[in-house]
Design a protein around this nucleic acid. Sequence first.
DNA 1: AACAGTCTCAACCGCCTCGAG
DNA 2: TCTCGAGGCGGTTGAGACTGT
Length: 353
Amino acid sequence: MSRKPCCVGEGLKKGAWTIEEDKKLISYIHEHGEGGWRDIPQKAGLKRCGKSCRLRWTNYLKPEIKRGEFSSEEEQIIIMLHAARGNKWSVIARHLPRRTDNEIKNYWNTHLKKRLIEEGTDPVTHKPLASNTNPTVTTTQPENLHSLDASSSDKRYSRSSSMPPMSLPLSSGFNPVSEITTPVQRGSLSCNKSIKKSSSTSRLLNKVAAKATTIKDILSATTISYESFSNGFPEQTRNEEDSSNALVDFDPFPQSLLCTEHEVHATSDLDMDQGYDFSYFTNVEYGHDILTYDLHNTNVEYGHDILLMSDVSQEVSSISVDDQDNMIGNFEGWSNYLLDHDGLINDTDYDFI
DNA sequence: AACAGTCTCAACCGCCTCGAG
DNA sequence: TCTCGAGGCGGTTGAGACTGT
């Protein structure tokens, strides 16, 4: 049985929207709210189909939509989530506040995909392209982890432009929705001397990963470079004489911290549309610089620096994640749960491997 | 200035999901 | 349980902008 096209009608207009049409749609929605798209064209005096109205509104006219260039943080999130979830643009969009799935999709297709290819990374599998026989790929990691040679490629990136270095290791035949049930042993945190000076981020990440199996799923797909989080580090903490090695792979499963069973529960009362003030962490825990980028407005929205901010407290194991679809969302909730319990942070009980 | 090739992204298309009846 | 339709989603298109010659 075939369905009727939703937009069959005489005289329906297609193509670019005019300012007048936009005004009519905005005016109608402001007055009557969203929904009932089928009836909106007639009621609003538009010769468009309802679907077209909905798309115009959700992808372009909605006031909260953020337009313009993607930040490097947003790029990181897109790449990371794409590695984990594939072309699930709507899923990715949920973690980039105020960005639409359409915009993310376009940005991926026109920018990020090309960039990954240029770097020698397959944009579909997020594995190194076959032709890219990078001799510095670490061989000490399990075969499902592939670290690109950051020491050479990272130098291409400046802080003000382009994407921070980030490799996205995935297992062969990676199934984005498969559960990782067995903690994967990893080697030690690959951290050179220059990084140890300011590796609180890495420590945090390791601690976060050590707490929950579900969280491991997302983190295991990602090797986060020191550089990618270091945009705001004080210059004196950065390795200036040896920037080619200024990379530390985030090891999601430091052996000494492996946990067997952890459930992370999202707090149900979190308002996922609400931003949270991260200023405590930047001011007290890490100094001002890590999140300087976002802290132009200290009321940071969801989706930003989730990993960075997700410090661990013992309280984590008191709450649950339903499925992997919700995992990232819960991850956000978890982050904010922790923020609500910032006094529980204790970095001193953490052991480097 | 004119033209061709390339890029960008808003908009469309068609299928899918899910809830209502 | 089935049907229907609204809304959601991902892939694709094409007009306009941009860039190179």
